[in-house]
């Protein structure tokens, strides 16, 4: 009897656990679906951007320019002069991230930047994928991603933090994205603008460090056809 009782408890627990996990999976997929749907409303946009690069061995002034986006993930950025754009994520869209075969897992609920977010882990099923694991902090209230952290095979981890205006609009686009990534400092080839005199000086900056790029978006013009000529021109 005692044994049987024990068994049934274990069974119940097992069933309960199984149910819970199924519920979570559903939950994660649903949450992601909501984000995708919300973002799918944006077909194209034009916006002004300010790009601020913060890497300890790079000094570049803040740049102002324009960004054009078009579905499914085409991005063009134009600034006067020269600018450095984060290699990953500039063309980030939820659609793109989840286009492949992946497994999404619900992790937990978490307060992030003053908002309640649902934390979801996304693991690509293909071994060939460079991404090992992505973690998303999703604001289910607005169906937007608040934060994204990705670990890759080749380039370490990078993260994107999205800031949204308080006012909720139809097209809920961030007014600022903070990119954070690993950057390796190789010995810079002295090359043409080589600095012979300082060659002897010991390089004090660490070889590996984090870099951030802050992009501030202003004056979104969404689905007004502004970006279409830019990409037409490009495809030509």
């Amino acid at each position: 009897m005692k044994k049987h009782f024990r068994f049934s408890i274990l069974l119940v627990l097992a069933i309960l656990t199984f149910k819970a996990s199924v519920a979570q999976e559903k939950n994660a997929a649903l949450i992601l679906e909501g984000v995708k749907k919300k973002f799918a409303l944006v077909n194209e946009y034009e916006a002004s951007v300010k790009i601020k690069v913060d890497v300890n061995f790079v000094k570049i002034p803040e740049k102002s320019g324009k960004i054009w986006y078009m579905q499914p993930g085409k991005v063009v950025v134009k600034t006067p002069g020269f600018s450095l754009l984060p290699k990953r994520g500039m063309n980030f869209t939820p659609n793109q991230l989840f286009s492949g075969d992946y497994t999404a897992l619900y992790a937990r609920e978490e307060q992030y930047a003053g908002v309640t977010t649902q934390v979801i882990k996304v693991i690509p099923n293909s071994d060939a994928d460079d991404i090992i694991l992505s973690t998303l902090w999703i604001d289910t209230q607005r169906n937007v991603i608040r934060k994204l952290e990705t670990t890759t095979k080749s380039e370490g981890t990078f993260s994107m933090q999205f800031r949204f205006p308080a006012e909720i609009k139809t097209y809920d686009l961030p007014d600022q994205i903070l990119f954070n990534f690993d950057i390796r400092k190789n010995e810079l080839p002295l090359g043409l603008t080589g600095d012979f005199e300082n060659q002897g000086n010991k390089d004090k900056t660490p070889k590996n460090s984090r870099g951030t790029v802050t992009i501030t978006y202003l004056n979104y013009l969404v689905n007004q056809g502004k970006a279409i000529p830019v990409f037409q021109k490009k495809s030509k």
Binding site: V55, T79, L84, L85, K87, M90, E155, D182, G211
Partner: peptide
Amino acid sequence: LKEAFDFQG
């Protein structure tokens, strides 16, 4: 720098 950035301009 090319590893971490896209160059524009």
